[in-house]
């Protein structure tokens, strides 16, 4: 949208003001996320830039909060850093255990959500699907219903069925929460999917399973993977349901952060936040690359 040559001075002024406004909104979106990164290297336990940091003096920076992530909860944090020390980290460090829990729960709930979600998306995209609208509304509702209501309902349900305080309970709940994202991304990939491709495969003698794995699957795989990543992030970031139904020793990263923020916020939280921001940048890049690949495969004009 280049400025036309006939624009009046007032329009020129607006053109540039508009860009400044948009720039400020972008700053509002991104600055709060990036600000935690330099602050997590602060040597002082403050949440603001010290003079040394502003002067880019190396003495103002340190990795002490990252180190604290490893040592917090250890039995012998001051021992020499050999194999035994690292074993201690692996078994006892609070944040490491939280990360392990988060990953276990995330991976299993993602597998479940992706498998069931992809299957359902294949059915929902067929033109013959009966009651599509109503079923779609039910399947997507876990995304819309406030988490606190879901958590309350699950709390009653799990305490009755004995699933409370178990990994299975949290995994099932997170699979329910992640599944709508799989449905949305996979059905979006299936829109404009050329049904004559599978018919051609059948025509050439492929049984339905071969047609699915050799023709359909490669084409919808980008959508499936990005749906899976969405589901994983949903589980990895979820804290309300975990607070309500998980056992006390089932700490996950967001739950540990939640505790940290509620009790006494320390820069260690910022170190975790920085790691999570880097993870989300990596995930976003993956999803973006997958989306472009999917568009290329389907012959949509590349972005």
């Amino acid at each position: 949208m280049a400025l036309p040559t006939y624009a009046s001075p007032l329009e020129k002024l607006w053109y540039w003001t508009f860009r400044v406004i948009c720039g400020l909104v972008f700053l509002f979106l991104i600055a709060p996320i990036l600000i935690v990164i330099p602050l997590s290297f602060n040597i002082e336990p403050y949440f603001t830039f010290t003079e040394k940091m502003l002067a880019l003096d190396p003495d103002g920076y340190s990795l002490r909060w990252y180190d604290g992530l490893l040592t917090f909860g250890m039995q012998m944090p001051d021992a020499p850093r050999d194999g035994a020390w690292w074993a201690d980290v692996w078994h006892n460090a609070t944040w490491v255990n939280a990360a392990k829990n988060s990953i276990i729960i995330g991976v299993f709930s993602t597998l479940l959500a992706t498998f069931l979600g992809t299957l359902a998306a294949l059915g929902l995209s067929r033109p013959e699907m009966p009651w599509r609208r109503a079923i779609m509304a039910i399947l997507l509702s876990p995304m819309i219903v406030p988490l606190i209501i879901t958590a309350t309902g699950l709390f009653f349900f799990y305490s009755m069925t004995g699933l409370a305080n178990s990994y299975i309970g949290v995994i099932l709940a997170h699979a329910t929460l992640g599944m709508p994202f799989v449905i949305i991304t996979v059905t979006a990939t299936l829109v404009g999917f050329d049904q004559s491709l599978t018919r051609a495969a059948a025509n050439l003698g492929a049984p339905p399973s071969t047609a699915f794995f050799r023709i359909t699957m490669p084409l919808i795989l980008p959508g499936v993977i990005s749906g899976a990543l969405f589901a994983f992030v949903t589980s990895f970031d979820e804290v309300v349901v975990v607070l309500f139904i998980a056992a006390h020793d089932q700490q996950t990263i967001p739950r540990q952060m939640w505790n940290g923020i509620r009790e006494q916020i320390s820069p260690a939280i910022l170190a975790v936040a920085t790691i999570l921001v880097i993870v989300s940048i990596a995930l976003l890049t993956t999803v973006e690359l997958l989306r472009r690949r999917s568009e290329r495969l389907r012959g949509v004009t590349p972005g």
Binding site: P32, M257, L270, L276
Partner: peptide, 11 residues
């Protein structure tokens, strides 16, 4: 894509 808790912490 960034964790909700990270964004809340930032604020």
């Amino acid at each position: 894509w960034t964790s909700l808790l990270v964004r809340t912490t930032s604020w």
